[in-house]
Amino acid sequence: MSTKYLRVHRLRRIYVWELPVRIYHWLNAAAIIALIVTGFWISDPPALMSNQEASNRFLFGWVRYIHFISSYIFFFNFLFRIYWGFAGNKYADWKQFIPTSKRFIREMWTVFKIDILMLKKNGEQQEHISIGHNAMAGFIYFLTFIAFLVQCLTGFGLYAGMSGWWLPKLFSWVPAVFGGDILTRQIHHWTMWFFILFAIVHVYLVFYHDYVEGRGEISSMGGGWKFIEEEVFEENRHHTPNPESSEVVGTA
């Protein structure tokens, strides 16, 4: 700690998450919460007693209705996000999610060592800084997209028989692949647990990064900005897939 006066970081404010990405994120979160709550309800409804005649009640019907509406929101939101992977800025690009280069895999390994195992080098805690997603996070999101796909396929597959609309009917082949609705429903139910585990780890890690790095990880999904050291920004500029892509940069 040989200092000649305190080290002072120059932080640059970078607009990382564009508005469509933020809207996507929160819509997705809301839809998933609604789907999980109603999904659990549908799989094992609580014993609510009532003196009303069945014809006066539609409680379970409403729960299912919310599930179906949320699933449509979830589905179209998902489609939009895929589109935005081609239309959005470089932090939203589809290449951020799919390990296509050696560099991607190397970065995943680095993140694993530093953020998860918290390995030290020369007795010092290391830091890995990425502006958008780090490679590990990107890859996990890729897995969530696959889980999204599984849920859309099995969910709409089960729903197809009840619907007169062509869109869900497009999925009617899915239960046939699994030999019927029973297994399809089970796959739908198991996959939901991936969402729960993911959400918990995801929220924890967002807090973790903000907690130890102090770069605005939590608030970035609100305003879109993150704060990155000037040097890191300069270095990253040369490594990103399309460094020329326009980015809105402001200095803090």
Binding site: P45, A47, L48, S50, Q52, A54, S55, N56, R57, F58, L59, F60, G61, V63, G161, M162, D181
Partner: peptide, 22 residues
């Protein structure tokens, strides 16, 4: 075989109302 037993079940109103045999 195009309809589920559930779609033609006479107990369906109880299902939609959330009234179940425990």
């Amino acid at each position: 075989y195009s309809k589920r037993v559930h779609d033609t079940c006479y107990r369906r109103p109880f299902f939609d109302a959330g009234l179940f045999v425990e």
